[in-house]
Design a protein around this nucleic acid. Structure first.
Lengths: 211, 211
DNA sequence: TATTGGTTGATAAGTATTTCACAAAGTTAA
DNA sequence: TTAACTTTGTGAAATACTTATCAACCAATA
């Protein structure tokens, strides 16, 4: 697979590029140069050219990049041309917020199953998404071929849910708990720890001001 | 300021270290070695020793690190010994979830003011936090000396709110919108784009499996 | 068609971060 | 007190990422 050689730092920027291309497309722009792109997404123009060049020569010298071409290319790269189904475990406040948010608006990612322990939610439909018992987690993940999971459960049960999910065939977990999860190498964990992020922000403000 | 020389990558890990130290402290551990630390937080032990060494010689050879000492040190470093007040703009679903979450549990960060446009929320108290009109944003930020803001508003108004907040003296913004904000150099923007994170996760699953 | 001007893609240099590997220093136990 | 053991702190090497620069190329125009 060619793209295995793409640097991680580049891969993390791809969704940002994708989003800006969508905006350009919607506003009927036909071309974009790396420097105007750079201004918009706040990434150095050389970095953008370097990033894009990992995928081949996508631009034209003296012209820039063709928005529609590039957007289509990104759709393939980022799997935006088919729907990815995602499961969500834990319908607390954050879980509900994510359900409601549901990523629909501009990405082809959709939460298609939710899981919780509370009897009164099980077998209901919340924000258009069916809610199952966590006891059926593994079974439903297998049946629905869900490979990606969002985890918004209490930290204390995070690892347990994680283990079950992996048995159910999950390959990626977006982990909103503060617990660092242990998982096999072929399962990717993306930690989103909001308290951490906020602390980091505050630390930077206090210590890196006036750079 | 000494700590200005701390690498960014290190600074980002500090909250993770802090959290794990808290756990050790709560479970009455007196000492910890860089290697057991490494197992727990999933960071290479040499990286941990290097990170800590930026702050001086905090450990003892042949012994490890004293948990309480280190924890106290981190509390100072991360401003955990005084409360940081944070504002939140936008009481949609995500905003409410964050209000309820309120970071209380293990960090000394507290949302102390919320802002929204909806008349029926203004001047109420939601999850223990007073809600003001966004029209009073600048004034309230000044009065309450709030330097950090969480932004969970529609993308279309993000930059406008950002500008007002900066006039109100804000120095750090945790931006949950997909818009890249433009701000002076002395204002730090931390982007938390959940759609991006999910897309990145999916990209990694598809392209970096079996590493 | 020739010329000008703009923009890419790539080389090379620069910067940042991680990891290896081990001397030095402290601990522990006899 | 000594010897064996543990673990840090750090120099040096390796890796990862970013940026400056510019030749090559294409588009646009006359």
């Amino acid at each position: 697979m060619v793209s295995t050689k793409i640097p991680r730092a580049t891969a993390k920027r791809l969704p940002i590029y994708y989003r800006y291309l969508s905006i350009l497309h919607d506003s009927n722009q036909k071309r974009v140069s790396s420097s105007s792109f750079a201004d918009a997404v706040q990434v150095d123009s050389a970095t953008i050219r370097r990033d894009l060049s990992y995928f081949g020569a996508l631009g034209k010298r003296g012209y820039g990049y063709d928005v529609d071409n590039l957007l289509n290319f990104f759709k393939k790269i980022l799997n935006q041309d088919h729907l990815t189904s995602v499961g969500l475990v834990g319908l607390g406040n954050l879980g509900h917020a994510l359900l409601n948010f549901n990523f629909h608006k501009d990405s082809n990612v959709r939460i298609s199953a939710a899981f919780d322990v509370h009897e009164d939610m099980i077998n209901t439909v919340q924000d258009g998404v069916p809610v199952y018992s966590v006891n059926d987690l593994q079974k439903q993940l297998e049946e629905q071929q869900i490979k990606v999971l969002i985890l918004t459960v209490p930290s204390s049960v995070a690892q347990d849910i994680c283990d079950q999910a992996i048995k159910g065939g999950v390959k990626g977990i977006m982990n909103f708990t503060s617990r660092r999860l242990v998982a096999p190498d072929d399962v990717r964990i993306q930690n989103v720890d909001l308290t951490n992020e906020l602390q980091t922000l505050i630390y930077f403000i206090e210590h890196y001001s006036k750079e």
